[in-house]
Design a protein around this nucleic acid. Structure first.
Lengths: 168, 168
DNA sequence: TTTAACTTTCAATAATTATTGAAAGTTTTA
DNA sequence: TAAAACTTTCAATAATTATTGAAAGTTAAA
């Protein structure tokens, strides 16, 4: 496998992984491309290399900025925007967790809290099962949320070694 | 909010959460329905309550069995299959992590390993950046994989309290 | 200003993914 | 064995999501 084949395969693989972890396929591909580029890339570079349209490139680059996974870099003498990826993959992972916590877990916790206040006959089996389910789920979601919150504030090795000690 | 509104809202919410964590919307909705049902449900019950077709209900119930998130329960005297959800949400979370690890992380690790062997000029900047990126990414993905692997073998409180101690 | 370089938007369209429902398949009972 | 009860499959279609590209918008140099 030569450099170009490897690069392609990497972009595809990262795209697939990304899309299964909540960031869109193309966004992950753009991120992959930036990740392995030693130099900052312009929108046009991204368009050419990934063979995507200007609109698409623009939109995904902006999303990457939104997620904190890429940054603008201005070159003196150039009017174009150039982009670089966050290259510390542990930071990338933490950033994704942080964003998804905010975008997905928080709203769910709000709904669960609301649902516990459902009115109904306390002797109704369905009602009882419902409140019980919601309460259990809320408890676990809160704990997971707590764990993620802590995880994004810690460094990689601390977490891994803590889990390792627990397990030994 | 009465019981039926609450139930609907729960099913919708769980569906949304599920779809953002890698299990399909309808599959998560079926799971939600089973979760709050005190009695096992048949395919027909699921069809009626979620207003989905027989094929769809069947497919999603089978997927839930595949993922280990629901189980068949046979009622004596009945020919139909009945289904119950795994109600321990921590087990559900672990099961999802386990499945996704197998389905998504493992293949990526294999590709990354392969990509490190790319042939090329060691003095080429791009080549060097490429191998470096892949190596870093592999390291982090492996650690995340390790952490998840440990997580699915531990109980909820152990993990949370370990993280808590680390953070205090 | 005006013009050129560049970025953003968005309606149209393409690609992907989920759903339907009828037909085929299977198992159980009589 | 036949018929009934139930499950599974899958081609057609619907719903959703991503992408295009031309036009509108912005910024900076001349």
């Amino acid at each position: 496998m030569n450099y170009h084949e490897a690069k392609d395969k990497f972009i595809q693989t990262w795209g697939t992984l990304g899309s299964s972890w909540g960031i869109s396929r193309t966004m992950a591909q753009v991120h992959a491309l930036l990740l392995i580029s030693p130099e900052p890339l312009s929108t046009e570079d991204v368009m050419e290399q990934l063979k995507i349209s200007r609109g698409n490139a623009n939109m995904n680059l902006r999303d990457l900025l939104d997620w904190g996974l890429a940054f603008k870099e201005l070159k003196s003498g150039e009017r174009k925007d150039f982009f670089v990826a966050e290259k510390d993959i542990w930071k990338v992972a933490k950033q994704i967790i942080k964003e998804r916590r905010k975008r997905e877990i928080e709203p769910v916790l709000n709904v669960l809290e609301e649902l516990k206040n459902v009115k109904g006959d306390k002797n109704d089996k369905r009602h009882k099962a419902f409140v019980e389910s919601v309460t259990n789920i809320e408890r676990v979601v809160e704990k997971a949320d707590f764990a993620f919150d802590k995880a994004v504030k810690l460094d990689e090795n601390a977490i891994v070694s803590a889990l390792f000690k627990l397990f030994k």
